[in-house]
């Protein structure tokens, strides 16, 4: 199950976050997060519900504004970026949403075609179709091309959501709980897909989860978000075998109890 990734370039950071703080009204969610993502790496962020994992990647993709600190993505500081530059940067970031966020009113094909047509100019219909077929094949759902999102299962929706972000050939993938609410077999499929995406498209990824099986299968490095800060950074084994912090152990034991 353990990952073996030779593609990581430790001399090249694609995301670099320093002292990131974010509060909603008086409620501090992130209290000074420091983290780097290296090129070609899968970084897993673990944490309990409500610790601000989604908030973190929403800040990285510019959906939320940071209160304090610096967030550097692909060499650009995004805390004070213009909307035009932000949009340009967003094309290089794929965001897989917690509940897939497929466009309900469009078929699977239209879901994929929509971002492609808007951002890649002068594509012939043939090229568009080729792109769509290639991506659907990559996520293993070629047969779903004409279905509506409402006709798909949770796991299939996740795959189409991932396909929709891949179609613009992003350099960074952000996965928000890719395995939440899926059965264990489908979880393994999604884990494999995440690894395949990394190998095939040479992306760097932040994977947010509280599923330790997913963390173990996909993570080159694991960090734990506790009380607004990152703690216990290292490989999966480092974090869970060598730390005797009570919180971490409880997290581990609970996950593997079933």
């Amino acid at each position: 199950m353990k990952r073996n990734n030779d593609n990581i370039k430790y001399d090249s950071k694609v995301i670099s976050i320093r002292n990131l703080k974010k509060a909603f009204d008086d409620f501090e969610v992130l209290k000074g997060v420091d983290v780097d993502l290296y090129q070609g790496e899968n970084l897993v962020v673990l944490g309990r519900s409500g610790t601000g994992k989604s908030v973190l990647i929403k800040i990285i993709s510019g959906l939320l504004r940071a209160d304090e600190g610096t967030v550097n993505v692909l060499g650009q500081e995004i805390t004070n970026i213009t909307i035009k530059n932000l949009d340009r940067l967003r094309l290089k970031i794929g965001f897989s949403f917690q509940n897939s966020a497929l466009y309900d009113s469009m078929t699977v094909k239209e879901n994929l075609e929509f971002p492609l047509r808007r951002h890649v100019k002068n594509l012939s219909t043939k090229e568009v179709n080729q792109n769509i077929e290639m991506i659907l094949e990559a996520v293993g759902l070629s047969q779903a091309i004409n279905q509506m999102p409402s006709e798909l299962s949770g796991g299939q929706r996740k795959r189409i959501g991932i396909a929709r972000t891949l179609i613009l050939k992003p350099e960074i993938m952000l996965y928000d709980e890719p395995t939440a609410g899926l059965d264990p077999i489908t979880c393994i499929d999604i884990n494999n897909l995440i690894n395949e995406v990394q190998e095939r498209f040479h992306t760097s990824a932040i994977i947010i989860t509280h599923d330790l099986t997913c963390a173990k299968a996909t993570g080159d490095r694991v960090v734990m978000l506790l009380d607004g800060r990152f703690k216990y950074e290292g490989t999966f084994e480092d974090v869970f075998k060598q730390t005797d912090d009570e919180m971490v152990q409880r997290f581990h034991d609970y996950n593997f109890i079933e």
Binding site: K58, S61, G62, L63, D87, R88, R90, L91, I93, F95, F97, Q98, N99, A101, L102, Y103, D104, S105, P115, R118, H119, R164, T165, L168
Partner: peptide, 19 residues
């Protein structure tokens, strides 16, 4: 229509794909 797009994060999905 817009309400359900908002609730199911579809509006944010538009935003992150630079629309």
């Amino acid at each position: 229509e817009i309400g359900s797009m908002k609730v199911s994060e579809q509006i944010e999905a538009l935003e992150v794909s630079a629309i």
